[in-house]
Design a protein around this nucleic acid. Structure first.
Lengths: 115, 115
DNA sequence: TGCGTGTTTCGACGTTCGTCGATGGGCTGC
DNA sequence: GCAGCCCATCGACGAACGTCGAAACACGCA
């Protein structure tokens, strides 16, 4: 896995309720939503996101009811979508949530985050 | 089909970063994400959400580069996912964003920070 | 009543997706 | 070096998806 595909993903779109999305914005935004649009991937992402420090070893989250090749396949999809990053540390591979992702999706849905 | 499917959709899940999703929560949540995981649907949803009063006639938003049957098909999918509701007013059919949806997805992504 | 317009449904096609078993590559420890 | 574990890739299969044209339905108006 020397280098996967970085994918320019996340500097995404305006809030959904601001303006109708252009074709380009929709293409980019839909990639993120589609990545989370599978139950297994959503569970994996949630497992990583809720794990200590926002990162988790594959062995800790692979109990989602599908075979391990399938888990690896979905993690790859999440990585390609720019939602996760992976890092090998010795024997194990750790997946980590890209922090900007949640912020981007949050601002996409809600108001400009008055906060 | 006379009766659409109401679908129990939106009283969805805890924040993604709180706890690993259960299979059931993931199934429910993924339905929403999957519905927005298509560029055409995302554009349609954004068009409705950003329209005056949160509702729009089909004729106002059907300019997304696909045929009208396809537009109707995607709107039906969004309705089945519980993201939109439809109402016929005379000749035209108006689609409206289910308000709880954005709140649910916002709380799903962001911190508890309700508002 | 009948026509025209707006919207949905139907049937079909090619493509993409999710899943698996088998295999390969990397690292640790004996 | 060799055995063993963890993870990724490969190849294949069935199912679901997105798209279209044609046809059907719903409504308003003359």
């Amino acid at each position: 896995m020397s280098n996967a595909k970085p994918l320019p993903v996340i500097p995404c779109c305006p809030p959904l309720t601001e303006r109708p999305f252009t074709a380009e914005e929709a293409e980019t935004g839909a990639r993120m939503f589609k990545a989370l649009g599978d139950p297994v991937r959503l569970r994996l992402f949630s497992a990583v996101a809720s794990h200590e420090g926002g990162e988790a070893c594959v062995c800790d989250i692979s109990d989602v009811g599908v075979s391990q090749p399938t888990v690896s396949h979905h993690l790859k999809k999440l990585k390609e979508a720019g939602l996760l990053t992976s890092e090998r540390r010795g024997t194990w591979v750790y997946y980590r949530v890209e922090p900007s992702v949640l912020a981007a999706m949050g601002s996409l849905l809600g108001p400009p985050a008055p906060r």
